[in-house]
Amino acid sequence: MLGKTAGGLYWMFRFLERSENTARLIEAGFRIALTRSSDSESEWKSVVTTAGVRAGYDDIYDSYAAAHVVDYLLRDMRNPSSVMNVIANARMNARLVRTALTTEVWEAVNESWMVMKAAMKRPVRETELPALLGEVRRHSALVRGALHGTMLRNDIYDFAQIGTSLERADNTARIIDVKYYTLLPSASFVGSPLDNVQWETILRSVSAHRAFRWLNEGNMTSANIAEFMILDSRFPRSLNSASHAIEAHLGFLAKDYGAPAPSYDLVDAQLNKLRAHTIKTIFDDGLHQFIAGFIRDNNAIGSQIEQDYQFNG
């Protein structure tokens, strides 16, 4: 496979994953704004921060009014991570690697772009927002479904999955990073029940509020939520699951190509770090430091993969 193709696949799926994650962030923010009238600005501000686009946003707007934030995250072409930009980039990468994709996968991506372009021509009204965000997630799921259902399990599939998992790990880690203070126990480790709205936002932004309820029988402590999002291997968006997926697919590539690449050692080290911790030791050592370290290492894994597989020559 061409190095360029591997890179195109990796980015195509990173962008798709990002479109879904940003849509979820907006959804969670929107919900909080509806359920709580006071201080929704600070909530929207943390949404912008989590999306990693604070600097660009602050250049244009002075406040964090819902309409501005939503428009910026959804369809502003000045925002490289806006849902519309990210979907257009995913599709551009899909065109670039068209020969590596089945018709089903290509058509799913292309259709998502056509539908979204039409839907986001004008600013999206509040009444249309929930339906539109649902569409973003649905289309991302369609592409993923076509990938699972129709693609060969070879290096093409591996690069697609690595892109998805790396973006996913980054996204979950960012959410924890921005919200870590709400997870910090005030007095003891066991902690007091969290502000309902806060934990809901966190869980909703990773589509896990329902799963969490089932697993923890309503026992909402900061430690439980943090453990779920960082260490729980059952939850597909936990740092642990996403890192495992990266390791698995780098492992398949190593088998396929005859030797492991340096990036495999990096993800192995990342997993060892996760294994060496319990949620208690993470809190003891400092949640913020732990997450910051994870994000840094995750990025390093990404750069190493780009080098190992000659994405850019």
Binding site: M1, L2, K4, R95
Partner: peptide, 29 residues
């Protein structure tokens, strides 16, 4: 891209190629 796909051959751009050992070669993974 359609023809590359239908023939089952790689679709390359100039920056994927360079001359290596007297042959034109494409950069693969």
């Amino acid at each position: 891209s359609f023809l590359a796909d239908q023939m089952g051959v790689e679709l390359v751009e100039g920056h994927d190629l360079k001359v290596v050992d007297g042959r034109v070669a494409m950069r693969t993974t």
